[in-house]
Amino acid sequence: MSEPLLSVQGLRKHFVQRKGFPRPRTIVVRAVEDVSFTIAPGEAFGLVGESGCGKSTAARALLRLIEPDAGQVTYRGQDVLAARGAELKALRRKMQIVFQDPYSSLDPRQTIGSALMEPMRVHGIATGREARARAAALLEEVGLPAAALDRLPHEFSGGQRQRIGVARALTLEPELIVADEPVSALDVSVQAQVLLVLKQLRARRGLSFLFVSHDLSVVRWFCDRVAVMYLGRIVEEGPAGRVLADPLHPYAKMLRDASPVPDPTRRGVLPRIVGEIPSAANPPPGCPFHPRCPQAMDVCSKVAPRWTVASGGGGVACHLHG
């Protein structure tokens, strides 16, 4: 097996808060706890789960947009968390991100051309006419005219702004794109257009993706492998076809069953996911999912499940398969 492009091992991120008056108390929010996965060259890896499960925090921590508390992140064998100065700057060229909100990720007072050319200037790739020509080519690659260079973000629709976000992520010719809920803020028809652009770019440029989403239908269509997160931890991981068609973890099954299927003959009442996600500041003992799990056993509330290799690829952290 070839060396992974990106390897994440034991990633952890806690947020410390002070709450209460007049005697404030310290609260530790365990946003990401012992997250591990790898991404191969040219692979699309999905990270799925309910809102608040820590998937976006994990994505930003491995890029060091927020600094993780512990863990190891290596990119082609190079330690990302230990990189400093010019070494870190070079790594940032190879790993770029597309944010969820296409409007807030753009400076409203900066033209699109300036937003695309600035990274080229900072990293010494191109300046002047050459940078403008590169920016125009990037816009055309994502389906926008070169005339958009002189316009401001508010002059575009949400789908067009997200295409601009994709173009900006490509300015430094990266190998890995972290797509953090890239289509969740868009209308369904526009989602399909942006996803098609991403898939075409992946094929044409040989890009790898870390695709963060709560939409299983999108992940099923776009990703090769998928990891299911719950309360800051990965509870199941494996080939997208296996995990989404025949999930092993009860939480992954609940997510799959609650995802609508575009088939009129299979319409019906979607099952409701029972209960709320426990607070990451006070996670339950044992398996974090046991308060909501329909198959919970006594051991689930006392002992954290070990990671078990699955026969169809990947693995699962569940006492039912331990």
Rank of each mutant, 00 (worst) to 15 (best):
M1P: 14
M1L: 10
L5Q: 08
G10N: 15
K13H: 10
V16C: 05
R23W: 13
P24V: 05
T38N: 12
I39G: 00
P41V: 08
V48R: 03
G49V: 00
G52F: 03
C53D: 12
G54P: 01
L62K: 11
L63A: 13
D69N: 15
V73H: 00
T74F: 02
Y75L: 15
G85L: 06
A86L: 03
A90Y: 03
A90R: 13
L91G: 12
R92W: 09
Q96R: 00
I97C: 01
I97F: 01
V98L: 12
V98S: 02
Q100G: 04
S104F: 12
I112P: 08
S114P: 01
M117G: 05
R121N: 11
V122H: 08
A126R: 09
T127D: 14
G128L: 02
R134A: 10
A136R: 05
A137M: 07
E140A: 07
E140D: 13
E141A: 15
P145N: 11
A147F: 02
P153Q: 13
I164T: 11
I164N: 02
R168K: 08
T171V: 11
T171L: 03
E175C: 07
I177Q: 01
V183P: 00
S184D: 08
A185S: 14
Q193L: 08
Q200E: 15
R202W: 04
R205Y: 08
L207T: 11
F209C: 03
L210I: 06
V218R: 03
C223W: 12
A227E: 00
V235D: 00
V235L: 09
G238W: 00
A240D: 04
L244S: 01
H249R: 04
Y251P: 02
Y251T: 01
D257C: 13
D263G: 04
P264K: 07
R272Y: 05
R272V: 10
V274H: 13
V274A: 14
G275F: 05
S279P: 00
P291K: 12
P291Y: 07
R292W: 07
S301W: 13
V309W: 06
G314E: 06
